[in-house]
Write a protein that binds this DNA or RNA. Structure first.
Lengths: 202, 202
DNA sequence: GCAATTTTAGAATGTGTATTTTAAAATGAG
DNA sequence: CTCATTTTAAAATACACATTCTAAAATTGC
């Protein structure tokens, strides 16, 4: 056994993640990644193999640390409509306000579908968000409308991430989100009272 | 005056635009652009100055030819909710189904806000779409809800472009769009009948 | 403390890149 | 036709890039 790593892996991955978020994969050089992480290229290559390896690690770090955590907290198995609304409202706060967007969505747009080094992380992230949103709506509103409303929210969510990256947050997007959730809460209340009536009849 | 260009400028810009759409700006090389356009680098540099110049030209070509035309047709000064719905439904058809997304949104995600060579084209395109959608809703539904509903549609629109690039169109997004426009049409009808009542009272 | 093994920093390497230069071919204007 | 000007293609250039190599420093297990 030789010596142990002297750098903080979490800190390096976090720096790399922010650098990729800002410049994209093709748009950043190893030299810039050295500056961002504070590591020399030798150490980076030793630890992650190559640029793609570092990118994959940064992606995984982002998905597990950032996406999975937020979904679990706001769209987990017992989450309510109000919790889900909070998920959407977090998109208007740090770190999304720095104009660098979401690493997963940025990378999706950079690579598209064909042979992307981000493929697994992308799929996992989309699946997490999709399952989270659909789960909450399936539990909360009437079943006939739940799928379409969930897809709407899914599109809304990713639309917000586009405008986050575009630096166009001046408009009333937060109001739009609240207004949509108000509508969903009305739908939920109608659904609940109808269920109560059905229950009484039995 | 020397000789005239022997290549079809429209065809070259269209090829370049599709190449940028597919690979991004940083992700494509001059050699690939030579292959895509059929021009030698000499001709490309003579005609467009440099890679960035060609990119700007391709962006302008896309915005004026693709975005502006679609907005005018489906969200112009006399467009209805049904027209606007058609705008959204075109996103599920050619050429958006090729998995290469929209050049403007792709470039937005690649460059973000800071000093992007796509800045003018981006701003123009976002403004066109924003103004088009807001215009239709201002005319069609009740004024108190119009802004929030327009922002919702704006986010929905760009969310669709994300999933278009992600190649994840298998889901019921088209239903989600139709369902949202059904709701807007109900809102419009309520608004209209309320206006009629007010008119009778006078 | 010794030896094996890993990390590390920096120099070295080769390839790919955008761009410029060159010279010949083409073509419009007079 | 002729001349000036432009396009064009291909070679030349210079630089940036990802990656590998080298040798020294560090650190663990025994």
């Amino acid at each position: 056994m030789g010596r142990n790593r002297s750098f903080d892996e979490t800190q390096v991955l976090e720096s790399a993640m922010h650098a990729f978020r800002r410049h994209g994969y093709a748009g950043i050089s190893i030299k810039q990644l050295e500056e961002a992480t504070g590591l020399s290229s030798g150490s980076l290559y030793n630890a992650y193999g190559d640029k793609e390896g570092l990118f994959r690690a940064a992606m995984a770090f982002y998905v597990e640390g950032c996406v999975a955590g937020r979904i679990e907290a706001h769209a987990g198995p017992v989450a309510t409509l109000d919790d889900l609304e909070q998920l959407f409202l977090t998109l208007f706060r740090e770190p999304m306000t720095d104009g660098n967007g979401c690493l997963v969505v940025n990378s999706t747009m950079e690579f598209g579908t064909q042979g992307s080094p981000a493929e697994e992380a992308m799929a996992r992230s989309f699946d997490l968000v999709t399952a989270g949103i659909h789960g909450v709506l399936r539990r909360e509103i009437e079943p006939e409308r739940s799928a379409a409303e969930a897809d709407k929210l899914l599109l809304l969510y990713h639309g917000i991430l586009v405008f986050s990256r575009a630096g166009r947050f001046d408009e009333g997007f937060e109001d739009a989100v609240r207004s949509q959730f108000d509508i969903l809460r009305q739908s939920r209340d109608r659904f609940r009272s109808r269920q109560q009536i059905t229950q009484k009849e039995e």
